[in-house]
Every structure is written in C-alpha cells, then in structure tokens.
Design a protein around this nucleic acid. Structure first.
Lengths: 327, 327
DNA sequence: CTGAAAGCGCTTACAG
DNA sequence: CTGAAAGCGCTTACAG
C-alpha cells in the first residue's frame, strides 16, 4: 500500500537515507564513492523506488510541475499545439505540464496550493490577489503572452488588435470594400472577440472605411444564411470572421445563397485550422506562429528555474496572413 | 513567503491546531461549540488561509485531484468536450481535473507520484506494472471507456470497430458500392485507425462487399486529389474516412477533380466537428454522445470516492450516424 | 469540548 | 566520506 520509500532503499543498500537522497538528487558537492552511488541507484531501480513528490513538495515548497490555467472557453487546435510544444520544451528539464480547464471552478487558490507548481501560466488574466498570493508563495506567474507582468485586464490585448487589423488590411485591397464582422456564437469567447473587433474597427477608421457591420454567426447553415442576407442588404462585400470556424460558416452561408466567394464577398478567418485549406474556396486566414510562442514561454520558465536574471527576448506575436482564395 | 498555516489560524483564534483542523475539514463526529467554529472559520478567511495540499497529501496519501493522461495524439474537439464535462461533473464534489498530454514523456510513475491523485483516467492503455503500482498506491485507475479493468492492449476496441461498421452500413446502401478507406496522415493516430479500419473490413465482408481500398490522405488538396484519382481508377464510389478532418480533405479532393459528392462518390466521417455541417456538401458522420460518456466516467470516480460497492451501469458507447448530404 | 504528540517521506544543515 | 536529527504543514488517534 505505502510504496517504496527512501528508507527502504537506504536499508537495502546499507547506507543512510541522507546518502540515498544525495545520490538520487545528484548533488555534486558531496563526494560519495562511485561504488556507493552505483549500489544505491541500482537498489532504487530494483525496488522500483519513486520519491514521494508530496513529501518533496512539502519539504522544498516546490514541485516539478508547471500548471497551465485555461479559462472556460473552447480550446481549439492552436492552444493545443501551444500546450504540446510547451510540454516538449520543458520535459527535457524534468518539468511536467499539467493543464486545468476553467470549467470546474474551484477557487484558484485551492488548485495551485494543491499542485504546488513551479510555475503557473495563465491563459486569461488573474485576479490581483491571486497573483499576489502565488508570487508570495514563490511561484513564477506568466501570462500566455509571456508577459511576466500581467496585462491590464481592461486594456485591449495588442496581438488581438493586430489580428483584426491584419484582416481588414487584406479585405481593404478590394475597391470600395464594405466590411462585415462575423461575431462568434459562444459567449465565452467574448473577451477575445471584443479586442479583435476593436482592431477591425480601428483599422477601418484608419483606412477611411465605414464602420464594420457586426453580426453574430452561429455554426450552422441557416444562421449563416440569415447573416449573409443581412450583410447583402447593407452592401457588405468583405467579411472578417472571429476565427476559422465562424469563417467556414460564412462560406457555407454564401454557398447556400448561391453567391461567389471571393467574387461577391471575400472572407478572412483566424487560426489556420486544418479545415481552412480544405474549405470551398480555400480560406484566407490569419495565423500565429505558435511554436515560437511556445518556445518563448518554455524559455521563460527555464530561465527562472536557473535563477538567471536576464530574460529571453520577446519574439513578437508572429502574426501573418495565409493567403488563399477566399480573400 | 511561507504563507498562512493552520498554526497561524489556531494562534489568532486562540485554539489548538487540532480544533482548526476539525472545524475546517468539517468533521461532524467531534462536538465543537458553534461560537468556536464561527471564530475559526472567520479567522481563516480573514488571514486568507488555504491548507497546504502537499502536507495534506503526505499525511492522508491522497489529494483532491483527478489526473487525465492523454497520449501523444492530437486531441480534437471530442476529447475536449469529454474533459470539460468530466470536470463539470466532478467539481461539485471538490475534485479538480488535471490533464497531462503524453508529449513530455517523463516516466508515468514520476507523474502520478508527483500529483498523488485520487483517480487516474487513461486515454490509452497503461503498461501492466504502472497499473499495478497505481492500484497498490490506492489510486483508482480507469480507462476512457470507463472500464475498470484495463482493456487488453492487443485486442481491438469494441467502439472503434463499431464506428467503422456504422460507416460501411451507410455507404453500402448505395447499389454496387465499392468502398475506399481514407487513412489519417498522423502516425500517432494509428492505434485507432487500425481498429476503425478493421471494423470497416469486417462489415464489408459481412455485407459481401469487396475489401476496402485503403489510401493515406494528408490534410491538403494535392494529397487528396492524388487519393481521389487512385480511388477512381479502382472504381471506388464510397469513402469511409478516419475522421471528419480527413473526410473534409476527401471532399476537397473530389471538388478539385470536378466530381460530385455524393453523386460520384459518397463520404462518411467520424466526430461531427463543427466544420462537418458547414462542409460542401454537409458531411454525414458518426458521432459519439460524449456527454453520456463523461457523466459515466464522473459517476465511476464519485462511486469510488463514496466507497460504494455498486458501480453505475455502463451507458454503452452511444454511437450514431448524423445523416447529412455527403452520403 | 479541546490540546499535546506522533508521524506521513523527504531534504539539508550540522557533526563526526 | 557518511549518519543522526530537525522540520516542512497537516491529520488523527489518544488523553484529559
């Protein structure tokens, strides 16, 4: 029931627990004979010893876990890739990534105290006091954007704004474009949608375009048809969609109405999901080089682990347009 | 740095740590005056006390965490929903779901010892000795299918087989159908693809259809076109795809070749992702009622938590065909 | 009704 | 080069 403890290993190999600990945690300062080292290691393996992380965490106040806190919203392939790459970058140093979806909303405090992570990466802003408490407990706290200092919750995110701007710049290449904005059906996405739309609106006004015509678009054909008809009445000829899923819906609505894309109406998505290149027509979309973000995040965590003062330089948000046929 | 401990709360409220523990963990057996209870609770809140889960885990050998172990493969919206629903079902009882993606492949042992979870849910089979070790440590071990007893790793999964069979049964409604199978590009998906294909093959032979013509289909138009041409040469008129993503690629290949779906070739996917209903034509696909699975999984964990002997009944895999236009 | 004390398994100064 | 001992923060028999 109890499992093998370091005491078992010590007894079996005829040394003290101290020595076992020194050998297994690989402290170079202490000199232990190669023979002893070998024997301890061998015994540990033979017995199937794995240190109790609870005890270690209690003793050192720190574990080898990196906790990713995802909010309530649907994750999608982009975040998923980010998480994978992050885990990749960290595993080499013995750090494991654990992900918590915001759903089961136990107080945040319970969670990080339960995990005693080395670092917490938040995909949405933390409350001020949570942040303080974690910092005080010696936990490294990062935002998704890799900003050590939490972005102001009420300030629009720079990269979200930029996404909207990139969409409009492409759409505005069409003469006399009248922009529509396809708003996502899931209310949990509003945080991002607001900033992306703001980016669209600002870009429109900068380019002397009229304000975009915003319409919610649920992910089914009838809803998309309704939106498309409304846009047509307003003279909309170019639609920026919240993301690729919504863009796919707009495409379906256009098809159902017998309209040509991009001829009658151009569409730009966000994310470059696998389905984007397979759409009819293939979807022009804004993509983030997510691997770069992941590497940067991993580098930040590792820099802190090494206690190094200098932080790795921010790689920028790496947004770019993937040009296909829909716009 | 250290944070507030139960000793702080005890001192502040003028009682012993014992009393604090009794009040806060809500032991009914012990009688403590309402006044004392109130005072302790109030002090705990005022001080911002949150118990150290590391210490609690060390002492009790158990935490309030449920660890989900995902293999290496891309997750997709179905698993994501499952995870969300699971978290939902468990949070009411103070259990938090933590997800680990197989990527950073530290030994499994390190991971569960680090987390000391109440239950581990594996989305792919465990090695025999890992399973034993976890059981011995008093951890409840479940498979995704909710099977307490780990499915034989070398036995094809019943629900995967059934998926393939459902696809073929639909496709076979077409007179003289010749079936193709669209194999996924990601090698990590092979575990599932093998079983689904096996289901397809068995169904074909049962229905007196020739063996399916298997072709890999990468998620881009040129690859899909290549596959579609090869299928045409073989006289294939109906394609079962590994999942919706692959099916979308086949659809794109058909379109690029100027072929009609389902006229020239029918297609059936798996998963019913949001993009499926928005495809051209809307995609017929096999869907699992994932909420049911999630509720069942949650019920299993909770039953164990309550120490109840009777297990909730298995709801079946809840597979069904979503009929749209592509087949 | 409440407190003193042991112990979960580890790490780490401190002695030898 | 190695060991005895303290202590991380909690829970829980056991006394009073």
């Amino acid at each position: 029931m109890a499992g093998i403890t370091s005491a078992d290993v010590a007894r079996e190999s005829g040394v003290s627990r101290t020595t076992v600990s020194y050998v297994l945690t690989g402290r170079d300062g202490v000199n232990i004979s190669a023979e002893t080292r070998r024997r301890v290691r061998e015994t540990a393996i033979r017995l199937g010893y794995a240190p109790s992380a609870a005890a270690r965490a209690l003793r050192t106040g720190r574990s080898d876990l990196v906790l990713c806190l995802l909010p309530d919203w649907p994750v999608g392939p982009v975040i998923e890739t980010l998480l994978d790459e992050l885990a990749d970058g960290l595993s080499g140093r013995g750090l494991s990534v654990l992900v918590h979806h915001g759903r089961g909303s136990r107080p945040l405090t319970d969670l990080w105290r339960a995990v005693t992570p080395r670092a917490v990466i938040g995909f949405a802003p933390f409350a001020e006091d949570d942040l303080l408490a974690m910092r005080q407990a010696g936990i490294q706290v990062l935002g998704t954007l890799g900003e050590e200092h939490q972005p102001q919750p009420d300030l629009p995110s720079r990269s979200q704004l930029e996404i909207g701007a990139l969409q409009v710049r492409r759409l505005a290449e069409r003469q006399g474009a009248r922009i529509g904005y396809a708003w996502p059906p899931d209310p949990r996405l509003e945080v991002f949608a607001r900033d992306r739309l703001l980016g669209v609106q600002r870009a429109c006004s900068e380019l002397g375009l009229p304000d975009p015509h915003v319409l919610p678009v649920a992910l089914d054909v009838p809803a998309a048809v309704t939106a498309v008809r409304a846009w047509r009445e307003q003279g909309v000829t170019a639609v920026a969609a919240y993301n690729d899923d919504v863009a796919l819906a707009v495409l379906a609505g256009l098809r159902a109405e017998g309209l040509d894309c991009p001829g009658d109406c151009a569409v730009v998505g966000v994310d470059d999901v696998p389905a984007a290149r397979l759409a009819a027509p293939p979807l022009t979309t804004v993509s983030q080089s997510i691997e770069v973000q992941a590497r940067y995040l991993a580098a930040l965590v590792l820099a802190d682990l090494d206690g190094s003062e200098e932080k790795p330089g921010h790689p920028g948000h790496g947004l770019h347009l993937v040009e296909r046929e829909s716009a």
